[in-house]
């Protein structure tokens, strides 16, 4: 997926800022991945064009908050890689944020589905 700018780049960027924590927690749900693997997975998605400079400090913060755990692991003769996974606190936080996200999507859908001139809610 190319990183060429698009007319929605500013919107995408603002949306990413607000949802990045949820994105990373959800990406680590029931899987253990290393940094480059996580980054490449996210960059497959059109609105998830984050950079290394955004991802790694965020992973570090989530680790310090106890939401994710990190462990260096070496397979065979390969170089050791740092793998990330959710902690139980991270799983709880993911459930909470996912609920709020779904509620936000439902709320937004309701607003989009109820244009004027009628009031949004019946008196």
């Amino acid at each position: 997926m190319s990183k060429t700018s698009n007319p929605h780049e500013k919107w995408d960027s603002q949306l990413r800022k607000g949802t990045l924590e949820l994105v990373v927690l959800a990406s680590l749900n029931e899987r253990q991945v290393y940094g480059l693997e996580l980054l490449k997975s996210l960059q497959q998605l059109p609105t998830m064009q984050i950079t290394e400079g955004t991802l790694y400090p965020l992973l570090d913060r989530l680790k310090r908050e106890g939401l994710i755990a990190a462990e260096w692991f070496q397979e065979g003769d390969s170089r050791p890689r740092k793998y990330f996974q959710l902690t139980s606190a991270g799983t709880d936080k993911l459930a909470l944020l996912a609920d709020r996200w779904r509620q936000s999507v439902a709320d937004l859908a309701y607003i989009l589905d109820h244009p004027g001139p009628e009031p949004m809610f019946e008196e």
């Binding site: 290393y34 940094g35 480059l36 290394e52 790694y56 570090d60 170089r79 050791p80 890689r81 740092k82």
Partner: peptide
């Protein structure tokens, strides 16, 4: 961590 990512 950063070095590991770059080498990857």
């Amino acid at each position: 961590e950063i070095e590991s990512h770059i080498l990857d």
